[in-house]
């Protein structure tokens, strides 16, 4: 099996996310043993943000890292496990609410593809960048 980042790279719809991970200097961490649960926004999700949003973040790696960490849980959790709780603490610190089981909605994003299992964690593909707050 591939790591989370390798899996993501192979799919081809996570270019922005991967670039962001590099810019934020999180590659090394995500390459680590983990395990992690990653809510991975697709490229369209980043594109839907107002102009300049991503650029400002990319220019400021610590701030970008913070937003990205909000998409990551420590530990590997499947959809089944996730929907059992209302909130999950992200690596960023703020909780990620699970809004709906079916359709599976995380905060204001919908999970378009759940339970992509990698060797250092699980990826859930989401259609929107989620933000703390």
């Amino acid at each position: 099996m591939a790591s989370i980042l390798e899996t993501a790279a192979s799919v081809g719809v996570f270019n922005t996310l991967l670039a962001a991970v590099d810019a934020a200097g999180l590659r090394e961490a995500l390459e680590g043993p983990g395990p992690f649960t990653v809510f991975a926004p697709v490229d369209d999700a980043f594109a839907a943000l107002p102009p300049g949003t991503v650029q400002t973040l990319v220019d400021n790696p610590p701030q970008l890292a913070r937003i990205l960490k909000y998409h990551v849980l420590s530990g590997s959790y499947s959809r089944e496990q996730l929907v059992a709780e209302d909130n999950w603490d992200s690596l960023e610190g703020a909780p990620i609410p699970i809004r709906s089981k079916d359709p599976f909605e995380v905060k204001n994003a919908t999970v378009v593809n759940a339970d992509v299992v990698c060797d250092n964690g699980v990826v859930h593909v989401i259609d929107r960048v989620i933000l703390p707050g």
């Binding site: 107002p50 300049g52 949003t53 650029q55 400002t56 973040l57 400021n60 937003i67």
Partner: peptide, 12 residues
Amino acid sequence: LVNGIFAVAGRP
């Protein structure tokens, strides 16, 4: 203003 808020949301 909304766009502006997003654009600079990530400034340190």
